[in-house]
């Protein structure tokens, strides 16, 4: 346990934090998330008085500003919450699964698959509008991950390393085929350049609801396998000795991961860094215990996403910066800082 803690954590966290610190942290995170949820409804590219915001929620009328709250800010807040939580847990899952703290949910080809499917939908099938893209993206993400899973299966079961390699290879090929399609089809190119930025704006809730059950199922699955993943962090042999069924755990974890990352990408387009970074922060605070990491990731990822989105609304008024762009700018420096830390070479 200690060796693992040292491997994954920064200095000073070699000892596993006590349950008290974990719980306090969780409460603080929850409070922060609640504050951000409120801020996300209050702050936008237009100035709307808090009283109007309150009225919009408690005393709905056909006032034009109230529509702005109910139709735009509230849905994007909900979408941010859902997508963030999904990406965070997906990141925690893949990092536990591959035992690689730098693994990103996109690594199994989820984003490449979603992106390629949308390109095909726009370029060859003439699909238009975010509602249509969503299901193609979801299907693409699922199919490609299944492909990667099939390619990555060895006689001994699913090896994370082989799966990552298979993911890299499939992503590259699909990326190339996608850009060939885009470059010969101006309409597809046009549609893809906004989809590729990753954003939580303009996703009406009635389009998002159907994807939600998949995410909930995946979250439950993730929690269910967290104990086994914990044991597997010590090594396959040790875990097997403790009675963990390796293949079953991996398959369940991969299904959960695919649904989470695929669903999030289907809704918001490719958003980087959230899934990579949040589990790290979770691990710093909570120590190497998967259930805690999942719990923290569920809270911390929407915090990052909503904070980035709010930032994106106010930085370039009256225009907005897509949240996918902001998370990269917020996230990448953190990654660099992470690597420059003292024990980073042990990552």
């Amino acid at each position: 346990m200690t060796t693992l803690a040292q491997r994954h954590d920064g200095p000073g966290t070699a000892t596993v934090p006590g349950p008290r610190r974990r719980l306090t942290g969780l409460v603080v995170a929850l409070a922060t998330l609640l504050i951000l949820l409120v801020l996300s409804v209050m702050i936008g590219s237009t100035a709307i008085a808090p009283s109007v915001v309150w009225d919009a929620l408690s005393n709905p009328s056909a006032d034009i500003d109230q529509f702005a709250i109910r139709d735009y800010r509230l849905p994007r807040t909900v979408v941010g919450l859902v997508v963030g939580a999904a990406l965070g847990v997906a990141g925690a899952l893949i990092q536990a699964l591959t035992r690689n703290p730098l693994a990103d949910p996109g690594i199994f080809g989820v984003q490449a698959g979603a992106s390629f499917a949308v390109t095909v939908a726009v370029g060859l099938l003439g699909v238009r509008g975010i509602g249509g893209y969503m299901w193609f993206a979801f299907a693409g993400a699922l199919i490609v991950t299944l492909m990667v899973l099939a390619l990555g299966s060895t006689r001994q079961g699913q090896s994370p390393v082989v799966m990552v390699l298979a993911g890299v290879c499939v992503s590259a090929v699909l990326g190339g085929a996608g850009s060939a399609l885009e470059l010969t089809n101006p309409d597809a190119f046009d549609a893809m350049r906004s989809w590729n930025a990753g954003s939580i704006v303009g996703r009406p809730l009635d389009l998002v609801w159907p994807i939600l059950p998949f995410l909930v199922v995946a979250l439950v699955l993730a929690l269910a396998v967290s104990g086994s993943l914990n044991a597997m962090a010590l090594g396959d042999d040790l875990a097997a000795a403790q009675g963990v069924r390796l293949t079953r755990t991996r398959v369940l974890a991969i299904i959960a991961l695919t649904l989470l990352a695929g669903g999030a990408t289907a809704i918001a387009g490719p958003i980087g860094f959230v899934g990579l970074m949040v589990p790290h922060v979770a691990r710093w605070i909570a120590g190497p215990h998967q259930s805690w990491i999942f719990a923290y990731s569920v809270l911390l990822a929407p915090i990052l996403l909503l904070a980035s989105d709010i930032l994106g609304r106010v930085l370039m008024r009256p225009s907005e910066i897509p949240v996918g762009v902001v998370t990269a700018f917020v996230g990448a420096p953190v990654l660099v800082a992470l690597v420059r830390r003292k024990n980073a070479s042990a990552l």
Partner: peptide, 10 residues
């Protein structure tokens, strides 16, 4: 090169 190289290397 992306398609061929990516596929082959993978």
């Amino acid at each position: 090169t992306v398609i061929l190289g990516g596929g082959y290397l993978g």
